[in-house]
């Protein structure tokens, strides 16, 4: 049982997040899937940080967190304004850009 187990766990979480993006239609849930992927990445960062005994990995995770916060703010604002204009949060309905 090695520390690599954390990496496997991170892979599983990342995959679940990615598949969420593919199959769910509710924009909010899709967004949560993205957050999960970011968290999986953070988990991997921390594992590697521990492996190498280097705090820089933790720092990278910290920055990921900050960027995720910013992303959430903007993303949710987009969802809210979409909902206001289209009365739906389904990502399939937002294909106006195609035309």
């Amino acid at each position: 049982m090695t520390v690599s187990a954390y990496l496997i766990l991170a892979s599983i979480l990342f995959t679940i997040g990615a598949v969420t993006v593919l199959v769910r239609r509710n924009a909010i849930i899709v967004f949560m899937g993205i957050e999960l992927m970011l968290n999986a990445a953070n988990l991997a960062f921390l594992t590697f940080s521990r492996m190498w005994g280097d705090l820089t990995g933790q720092l990278a995770a910290f920055f990921v967190m900050v960027v995720a916060a910013a992303e959430v703010v903007v993303g949710l604002a987009i969802i809210v304004s979409l909902f206001r204009t289209r009365r739906t949060v389904s990502v399939d309905d937002e294909n106006l850009m195609r035309h």
């Binding site: 593919l22 899709v30 990502v91 399939d92 937002e94 294909n95 106006l96 850009m97 195609r98 035309h99």
Partner: peptide, 14 residues
């Protein structure tokens, strides 16, 4: 492929 569905694009990306 350009069907306007974000999820399809995401699938391509993945």
């Amino acid at each position: 492929l350009q069907n306007g569905y974000v999820r399809s694009y995401a699938a391509t990306m993945l």
